[in-house]
Amino acid sequence: MTVRIDPPSATAEGCASCSMANLATLRKLGITMDDWDYVAALAGNPNVGKSTVFNALTGLRQHTGNWPGKTVARAEGGFQYAGSRYKIVDLPGTYSLLSTSLDEEIARNFILFGRPDVTVVVVDATRLERNLNLVLQVLEITDRAVVCLNLMDEARRLKLTIDERRLARDLGVPVVPTAARQGEGLPLLLQMIDEVATGKTICRPRRIQSEPPALKAAVAHLTEQITHAFPGLPNARWIALRLLDGDERMAEALRTGELAELGQVSAGDGRGDGAESASSDADSGEPKRPAERPARSQGRSLQVESLR
């Protein structure tokens, strides 16, 4: 039996599309981010390993600790994968996106107004039910999401079996089982992040279904008005929910026209057509859509939003 190792130039066609080959091209960029093609946000409950995933992708050593509330400010870093440069934003861990505390507000506003190209929701596989509450809320805001089913090593230790295909079907977004501390599952996670961000995979996220009829009717009514006023908005229903909840930040965004802007960008933002161009001219280093980025997401590394 002979084993022949091909030089890189002779790599067969099939290899180029394999996630393992792409992993070999993963370049951890740390915080040296001058421009980027896509923005990925990392959301999740406290203490599920967001910072560990963040470090694994960026090569940074943002301090991780085994206690909830480790990350209180946004941390940013970058990596390059499959020819595209990604900026990745580690959001504070929250149990929900519905309350008024500062950390939840930072996470909520970034996912909505920061318009990440993909939001990775890191969940604790051993506490799936409670973690899904947040996943469902994120899926109300954005339909470009990947669920990272982390801490699979612990789930195995507890002898839990999780049917991730079933979960992916029910949620309508890709689900990737990982054990980030051991580096397990990261190649597939990267591939899914890339596919969702570039539009190769189109998600059909599950929206909350069990509301009582009165609530459902009210939300539908308001959503219809918002859709009429801002036809391009991908998350009119979430905005309706927030307005019904009396969210002042959202009301202000509505009055100042910030929401209208969100709608226009989304409307002109072809989902499928980013894919080819992303891989072809990535090496030119041209930022693809910097003009569309809100000014506040331009900051670099450990940007801190202090209290007003």
Binding site: E129, L132, L136, L160, T161, I162
Partner: peptide
């Protein structure tokens, strides 16, 4: 919703 989805996906020992 979360309970429903989790229930279908997770098998406990």
């Amino acid at each position: 919703d979360a309970a429903q989805i989790a229930d279908r996906a997770v098998a406990r020992p």
